[in-house]
Design a binder for these strands. Sequence first.
DNA 1: ACTGGCTCCTGAGGGC
DNA 2: TGCCCTCAGGAGCCAG
Length: 271
Amino acid sequence: MPELPEVETTRRGLAPHLDGRLLTAALVREPRLRWPVPDALPQLMVGGRLERVERRAKYLLFRFDRGCLIAHLGMSGSLRLVPEHTPWRTHDHVEFAFEGAPRLRYNDPRRFGSLHWVTDAPEDHFLLSGLGPEPLGAGFDGALLHRLARGRRVAVKAFVMDARIVVGVGNIYATEALFMAGIRPTRAAGQVGRARYDRLAEAIRTVLGRAVTMGGTTLRDFVGGDGKPGYFRQSLACYGRGGEPCVQCGQPLRSERLAQRATVFCPRCQR
DNA sequence: ACTGGCTCCTGAGGGC
DNA sequence: TGCCCTCAGGAGCCAG
């Protein structure tokens, strides 16, 4: 489900309610996520104070005074605030109770998400240690992409979706950014020139930034921490529009499978 | 070092 | 109504 804008939307929805709160209880109903949730998670966490909710790539970092909860939403996960005594829904796997705040529920039908507890610096955790730069932060630009792409034969779409290169660019936004930059997704990463990587980096920033502003993209059921859907779907020019006319030239958009992912592009505008 | 393919899992939607 | 097939917003892992 969530790409970077959806994760950031979740963070913004949760932080005002949870920052500074004391964790009074944690319940794991279903530990079988991407990695098993340790039995000891509640006893490790309860009694700790949540200092702040941060985001790194598509991971949410719940920084407590005594450690850090690293949460990933996988493809179908969500973290929502619900009133106490809200009936359990299917796939509500974990619940956290904070003093003076609604309950925090982790729901994930496909269970591709994960929860890790660390007491060392989360940046050193194996899930985070190899990650590339944040696309909306400093240290990401066309020069970086161009340099890392040298000699690479992988398709440029897979290249920008590789979290070691740049984080947070999932299938929707990779598709949109390549369309905006006029680059064909199947082109080898090493065959894209510097000027075009400048345009691509700018397109990635623009697309992700706009999506964050609009609360992310709700395809079927994404909701932010406040339970509201995202509105970026209406802005999608390419993703999910295979066969429909290109908004720039009117040609039918082509739909292909690339690296096991649905890929849409305009055969005329994207070269 | 790269690359492509497979995998985890449930649910929705289309065709028959 | 039901069954079977395909596909879905991620990304770690593995063989070649």
